[in-house]
């Protein structure tokens, strides 16, 4: 199978996020980037499919801080090729990203081989202008499934049968003809761990192909105004002290409310 994984780096929200001086973007100073959880799962799902059905896994990512580490880690896990698209000064919105990624994919495969499955994270935390997968499904005119939590390949690689999540644990099974694009919510197995030593080895033996990204002008339809941190509606009463003291206070609260 020809498996392509499109990766998107997002700000790490474990760090404090601050709004920059212009009031309309994040303050870059303490910003760290990481792969979103769904993207980690997209990589894992790609590797699982490769192990089961053979083929190659190609990664495509826009240049961003920490992206080399992410790509080498995925190569160490078993991906075959990594393409980094350079030239974007700040993270572009999803429509521009989608065009850049589509141009890159077309540059490698035109038309898409019949056994192509494109995977990406179902969502990203900065998807203000929509998710990547539907933008690409439109660009390539291929079938799309979102919130995918399981993928089977049938009919000798002509069809994907996916499980998508609804809510309350309810899921639905859908079938799509390949080539197709899937927004992955979670892989069938948790993302695998790869030891640092293997990543270091990949840094020596594998390489990342750098290409200049084709970045079109962003569509004109949206005007981004002010960005701000939310104001908390309330706050918990904080219980202070060592673990024993805190335990006593909690027990008092629970007793008052007849919970114990």
């Amino acid at each position: 199978m020809n498996i392509v994984v499109l990766l998107k780096m997002v700000p790490d929200t474990v760090e404090e996020l601050n709004v920059g001086a212009d009031g309309r973007s994040l303050d870059a100073e303490f910003l760290r980037y990481k792969l979103g959880d769904p993207d980690e799962h997209a990589i894992e799902q790609a590797l699982l499919l490769k192990e089961k059905h053979g083929g190659t896994v190609t990664l495509v990512a826009l240049d961003a801080p920490e992206v080399d580490d992410v790509l080498f880690t995925a190569l160490a896990k078993g991906a075959d090729r990594a393409i980094k698209l350079t030239g974007a000064e700040s993270p572009p919105g999803t429509p521009v990203l989608a065009q850049a990624v589509a141009a890159c994919v077309r540059g490698v495969w035109n038309p898409l081989p019949a056994d192509t499955l494109i995977l990406c994270g179902s969502y990203a935390i900065d998807d203000l202008e929509g998710e990547l997968a539907p933008w690409l499904a439109t660009a390539f005119e291929i079938p799309l499934a979102m919130v995918v939590a399981g993928v089977q390949i049938e009919d000798g690689g002509r069809k994907a049968v996916v499980t998508r999540e609804f809510f309350g644990g309810l899921r639905g099974e859908f079938e799509l003809d390949l080539p197709a694009i899937l927004g992955i919510q979670s892989a069938e197995k948790p993302p695998r761990y790869v030891p640092i030593a293997k990543v270091r080895a990949a840094m020596k033996s594998a390489r990342i192909d750098s290409q200049a990204a084709e970045l079109p002008e962003p569509p004109a339809g949206l005007e981004l105004g002010r960005m701000a941190k939310p104001e908390a509606a309330g706050h918990a009463q904080m219980l202070e002290g060592d673990p024993d003291k805190v335990a006593d206070q909690i027990i008092e609260v629970l007793a008052q409310q007849s919970l114990i």
């Binding site: 935390i125 949206l222 005007e223 981004l224 960005m227």
Partner: peptide, 16 residues
């Protein structure tokens, strides 16, 4: 809009 997992809010208008 709520962005970055609820850590930042953005105000957006449509041009048309």
């Amino acid at each position: 809009s709520q962005l970055f997992g609820g850590k930042v809010f953005a105000e957006v208008r449509m041009a048309g």
